[in-house]
Design a protein around this nucleic acid. Structure first.
Lengths: 119, 119
DNA sequence: AACATATATTCGTATTTACTACTACAGTAA
DNA sequence: TTACTGTAGTAGTAAATACGAATATATGTT
């Protein structure tokens, strides 16, 4: 039991409120359509802030703040190149997480369709 | 590209704002320490609301609302047994999701420790 | 029926937060 | 230096939400 809500390899004990807060913070960083839109725009290649403004339709200041949040949680990396700052997906975790969520949603939709079809 | 922000097996197209909202909603359901605490209490066995009140320390009304949210997102299942309602983890997704997050946090902590150790 | 217990819901409030508009900072070029 | 561009930060505001307290509903018991 308790394999998930504590760091791996640690002693078997209750997750502290601090740890729960950290995990919740990671989820909260992804709990916003605007930030998911940013992450989607970063799939495959890195992008400058200007590019992301165009791709996402978000305002520049707003977008920048979302990027700070994603960077603070380690979901995106930053690379300065002269006047431009290039952002990129930091790892594959975002992809894995979203894939699980999409899988769940797909299952829900299919279940609903079965209910509808059964009438 | 775009393997993650749309349901599997669908045509290759941009994720709609609706889909992004649904995914964000799934993440938001997990973006709260109180709800993670509930999910942790449900690891291994189902629990009644009364049991969850004791295990989590949350108020009964507050807890019930959190349970409704988790149930609406499909993370927990409900089973009525007379006067009691038993809640349980609906699937293994929560465990997988939290494991990824814990893994990330652990990596961050280790990275910080390396920085500290290098001084 | 009345009563008791378990769970759900409503109300009011304080906190959080996403957004826009504006301003500040960083880097480049003249 | 000044001017210009890209990015980051600040202030104010409206919407979302987590919480406690109180109330309502559901089920079982007498």
């Amino acid at each position: 039991m308790c394999m998930t809500l504590r760091p791996r390899g640690r002693a078997k004990r209750e997750p502290t409120p601090e740890l729960l807060g950290l995990i919740a913070g990671q989820f909260r960083a992804l709990a916003e359509p605007a930030r998911l839109s940013i992450l989607h725009a970063l799939e495959g290649k890195e992008r400058t802030v200007t590019e992301l403004v165009e791709l996402t339709g978000l305002g520049q200041g707003n977008l920048s703040k979302h990027l700070q949040q994603l960077h603070a949680c380690g979901f995106v990396s930053r690379r300065r190149d002269g006047l431009f700052v290039h952002y990129a997906l930091a790892d594959k975790d975002v992809l894995a997480l979203c894939e699980i969520m999409c899988h769940r949603l797909e299952a829900d939709i299919e279940a609903e369709q079965r209910v509808v079809a059964a009438r």
